[in-house]
Simulated scan of single mutants.
Amino acid sequence: MAGKSREKNNKLSKKTIIKNNLIERGNEARTIRRIVAIIALILVLAAGGVFLGGYIYIESSLKPLDPDNQKQKEVEVPIGSSTSSIGQLLEEKKIIKNGTIFKYYVKFNNISGFQAGNYKFSPSMTLAEITDALQTGKLVSKEVFKITVPEGFQLEQIAEVMAKQTDYSAKEIMEKLDDPKTVDEFAEKYPEIITDDMKADAIKHPFEGYLYPATYSFYEEKPSLDAIIDPMIKQTQIVLANYNEALSEKKMSVHELLTMASLIEKEATAKADRKKISSVFVNRIEEDMPLQTDPTIAYALGEHQVRTMYEDLQVDSPYNTYVHKGLTPGPIANAGKESIEAVLNPADTDYLYFLAEYGTGDVYFAKTLEEHNALKKKHITDKRKEASE
């Protein structure tokens, strides 16, 4: 009996030990899970802190180092300097906060063409101001004058704007821009956009549409005409570089893009849907119909027109889209980003006609000539009659 009792006690003791071991292991597992959870939380918080800290640091690095410090420092940029070395130099001179951030700012904004020289920069300058100075080779930070080129301006109008801000006459500027040698000079520098398409015999002004609408700062009292024209062409190349893939997909040249964009720019009112206007031009070309856009008549005649008369439609010019099908030989004005994008992304419509209402600029679209004529009577003919009474 005593042996059986001892055997029973031994079995109970083993069960107790196993049970205790299981309990102990369970406690250990819970402890481990808690530790892992705490460590994971710490890592997440640390990662979030690093991300937030990094974001704040990058954001601050993109701003002027010291907006209130306009004291200029001389910075010599040696010939052949890389973007990295320039960024490091500017950081060492305490002009910017971080040279690496500068390098990526330049890369992501597709900025290139930095020029060597002795510059004067201040910690109050933005990265945009610094890179602009490095691109243009201007050795002072304060601009002497500005030239603003509005959207939709034609080359002769732009020449007038330039003439008002410089010692050059509009005639001198136009002679420079119409000189085939000027085309060749800039073709060497900007071969992506300045092409033989601009040299066609039918072209009225080769640089029409190629001077991008924007405000340009100049840092010399009397810059050369090349120095004035160059940043305008360069900006066109910078803007169009964003659409290389779309142009390739559409098998469209830069010249065709700027030409069609100029037609849209001149037809569009403030209330117009440029993508719908683009769709009308696309549909008419596909239907082998002439574009019949009035701004091309004004361009062919060389004068501004409040109203296009029937006899004007007979003008003998390759820019007359009532007589000649397809696009004009070249742009008839410069075009802004909205019109350029409308060419590449036209609306999906069946429209073949559009018109702007007399007095309001509201634009109406039609699929058939009958619909168009009805809209013309209602929104133009009758409105003019009402206004004259």
Rank of each mutant, 00 (worst) to 15 (best):
Y310K: 07
K383N: 08
K63Q: 08
L62Y: 13
A241H: 13
P78Q: 02
L134R: 01
D167V: 14
M125V: 04
S248Y: 09
T360P: 13
V106W: 06
V75L: 06
A46P: 03
K199H: 12
N10D: 00
R25N: 10
Q314M: 15
T215C: 06
V161E: 03
K94N: 13
P318I: 04
I86A: 01
K181Y: 08
I380G: 09
S317K: 04
L62H: 05
A116N: 01
Q88K: 12
Y364Q: 12
L177C: 12
L177I: 14
T148N: 14
P213N: 05
L22A: 11
D294K: 14
H372Q: 08
N98C: 06
K250M: 00
E256D: 10
V77Q: 03
L45N: 12
Y216F: 06
N20G: 06
E370D: 13
A29D: 10
N242G: 04
L225D: 00
Y322A: 00
G87P: 02
T16Y: 03
P123V: 07
V50N: 07
K107I: 07
L352I: 14
A2T: 10
T293A: 15
I228L: 01
R30Y: 07
A246R: 08
T148M: 14
S217R: 04
L263V: 10
R274S: 05
I233M: 14
A347R: 08
F281I: 07
A2S: 09
E7M: 11
S82G: 08
K234F: 02
L313Q: 01
V280R: 01
V323N: 02
P346Y: 11
N9L: 04
E91R: 05
V44E: 05
S224T: 07
I101C: 00
T269A: 13
E185V: 13
